[in-house]
Amino acid sequence: MQNLFAFFLKYHFFILFVVLEIISLSFLFNSYSYHRSLKYNVVSDASGSLFSVSTSITNYFSLKSENEILIEENTGLRNKLKSSFYNPDSTADYKDSLYQYISAKVVSNSINKPNNFMLINKGHNQGLENEMGVISSFGVAGIVVGTSGNYSAIMSLLHHNTRISGRIKNGGQLVNIEWPGIDYRLGKVVDIPSHIVLRQGDSVITSGNSLIFPGGILIGTIVNQEINANAELSEATLKFATSFNTLKHVYVIKNKNRAEQIELLEESSDE
């Protein structure tokens, strides 16, 4: 017993070091797996409000460009209004919309890590839940992975677990979008059937096949395609529509029928 005690006394520095490293690394590796990163829950109102104070100051520097972006977007939306069309189709008169958009401000954002997250100033008090889609004025931005009372953590597209179901706008092929890391402007389009030849500037939009994003939201544009004659699937580089380094405002998409859709999927997979 005395020997054991002497052992601990002699090596306490090393033992404490090993214990602390084990604790840190187990935290870290738990947050690495996809499901854990979706259940991600270290968001707190404390860290959120600290970032809010700092962004409320720094936001003034970008007011002008932010305004221009919002005006552009408003113009686009006005063009889509029913009253803007000469002869509206009376059958397409939806009483209830399927998706509801909730605006939020980005209070913290990173782009230079292998896995990037954002913090926004709306949380479950405002109706946000995990696995809701997040878009910017330009296109897809990320997915909600954790909520506290008034703040939410967003897994940005710049994350190694990103896998968004997309569609080539010009042709309609289904593809998947990933982020290979390194450059915050460029993503990767995978699972393109090899006979499809893409041109520079082709748009990639959300497919609408997931419960997270409605179809038709821009993800990015093709930069170049790498065709491998032997493989069945080819890959392409994509320039994200959202500029992550200047992101200030986002919209969270609430799918009102999500619960119903999930229930139906679970029922049919049970059988």
């Binding site: 602390l20 187990s26 870290l28 913090l119």
Partner: peptide, 12 residues
């Protein structure tokens, strides 16, 4: 880590 959403990384 708490402020950077990287639980455990900076601690290690």
């Amino acid at each position: 880590d708490f402020f950077g959403n990287t639980l455990g990384l900076h601690a290690a």
